Amino acid sequence: MNLRINGSVHAVDVAEDTPLLWVLRDVLGLTGTKFGCGIAQCGACTVMIDGVATRSCVLPVVAVADREVTTIESIDKSPIGRKVQEAWLSEEVVQCGYCQSGQVVAATSLLSRVANPTDEQIDEAMAGNICRCGTYVRIREAIHNAAEA
């Protein structure tokens, strides 16, 4: 099947029920999207499907055959994604960094839909993106900073 990922079409020969995460990582070598829990609860595997933050660890690849997939590898191609990455750096959000690709993708998806989100909107959009280092306050501040930029 053909997949549209980060603006390019990729032909992949995998079973239709293969989780998108494993196609990204193991078949296409896009390892920025991380495996965390395998049950769509932690957010480490978050990608955007047609601009919407989506967990890729449980999503069968056949579900994205005619859709645009955006991973952390190309998030800086959009002005919003660049602003989010710059805000992440200025707020020094990252500690261990494992969850951050999913966090950045989810924040970019949010700001693509809501230009100036409230704390409640941020909390709702980022719910389920777990940061074991507890950088939630800095994540929220970075999202506000990216919205203002």
Score class of each variant (00 low, 15 high):
V69I: 14
V61Y: 01
V69T: 11
A125K: 12
R4A: 08
T18R: 14
G36N: 04
Y136W: 00
S56V: 06
C42N: 05
A147P: 03
G43H: 01
L3D: 00
H10A: 02
P117R: 09
C99N: 02
N6P: 11
V84T: 09
G51T: 10
A44M: 07
N2S: 13
A87D: 02
G38M: 05
E92Y: 06
Q100E: 11
T31H: 13
T135I: 04
V23F: 10
V84S: 03
T54G: 10
L24M: 08
E86K: 11
G32V: 02
V27K: 15
V9T: 15
T71C: 09
R140Y: 13
C37D: 04
F35A: 15
D17W: 12
V52Q: 14
D119L: 10
V58A: 11
P60V: 03
V23H: 09
K77E: 14
L111K: 06
S112Y: 01
L30S: 07
C131G: 11
I122S: 06
L28I: 09
R25L: 03
V69P: 07
V104W: 05
E86N: 04
T118R: 12
G128K: 11
K77N: 13
S109M: 09
T135F: 03
C37N: 05
A142M: 04
T71R: 07
C42E: 02
D13I: 08
A11V: 12
H144W: 06
G128H: 11
S8K: 15
S101K: 07
